[in-house]
Amino acid sequence: MTTLIVNGQRHDVDVEPDTPLLWVLRDTLGMTGTKYGCGIAQCGACTVHVNGAATRSCSVELADVAGKEITTIEGLAANGVLHKVQQAWLDHDVPQCGYCQSGMIMAVADLLKNKPKPTDADIDAAITNICRCGTFQQVRAAIHAAANA
């Protein structure tokens, strides 16, 4: 039995300790907002926050996150109010298929925490998520909008 704290809630899970956090979230806890894209930390669709830092959950084992604070896309909005990144995404109509956007939003939320007013170069360095629909132009505009919100 391993204890996880996800979006402020404690969960005791009984799966193999080498199970990636991604699949604990999706299969064990039923929180499917975090997406599977590659399983090798390349695409970023599975990005969550572990102790406040953006982390690719496909490549972190359950045993490594025991007792740590995990925030997923489901927990980003507080008290029913969208996080400023989500709000900027809504205002800029960012998603196309939307599948990569949970991870994209989590990565951007982390960036803005560390760099509240990122430059384009900061964005280029920090955001390495893959989006096959190609929403990058709207993503960039929405990041700047969120930073100035």
Binding site: M31, T32, G33, T34, K35, T72, I73, E74, L76, A77, L82, Q86, W89, L90, D93, V94, P95, G98, Y99, Q101, S102, I105
Partner: peptide
């Protein structure tokens, strides 16, 4: 769009 921002969208 809305559900794609919160993890609610079911694929």
């Amino acid at each position: 769009t809305a559900d794609k921002l919160t993890g609610k969208q079911i694929y």
